[in-house]
């Protein structure tokens, strides 16, 4: 178990780059409460990021993914998160194997 110096350098550089992206937004905005358009834009970030992450999988990958997302959306809010995740994963796995063999 050894650590190569170039690998160490690469890991440190990746860590610095990643940390920079994480701290930059916090530095720029600070803890003051934004108002107006900036507030509206920042309020929209959580939903907009989550939607952007899942949209290609949900809407543009295949029937199995779209239907499994629909099934998950139906149980969301009625059951605990762990159960909703279990339903989603099971639905995706079943639908993929059904549609692949059919």
């Amino acid at each position: 178990m050894s650590i190569d110096p170039w690998t160490l350098a690469a890991i440190l550089a990746m860590a610095a780059a990643t940390y920079l992206t994480r701290i930059l937004g916090v530095w720029v905005v600070g803890t003051r409460t934004p108002t107006g358009r900036l507030a509206a834009a920042l309020d929209a970030v959580p939903g907009a990021v989550l939607v952007a992450v899942i949209a290609p999988t949900v809407l543009a990958t295949g029937v199995a993914e779209t239907v499994a997302a629909g099934i998950t959306a139906l149980v969301v809010g009625r059951v605990p998160m762990v159960v909703a995740v279990g339903v989603g994963v099971t639905a995706a796995a079943l639908l993929r194997s059904l549609l692949a063999s059919g």
Binding site: T21, R22, V29, L42
Partner: peptide
């Protein structure tokens, strides 16, 4: 290359940090 790629892949964190900050 690895540092630049990490920066690019994680750019979304800038927006996320800005939203988290307040």
């Amino acid at each position: 290359v690895l540092a630049l790629t990490a920066l690019l892949v994680n750019l979304r964190h800038v927006l996320m940090g800005a939203a988290l900050s307040p």
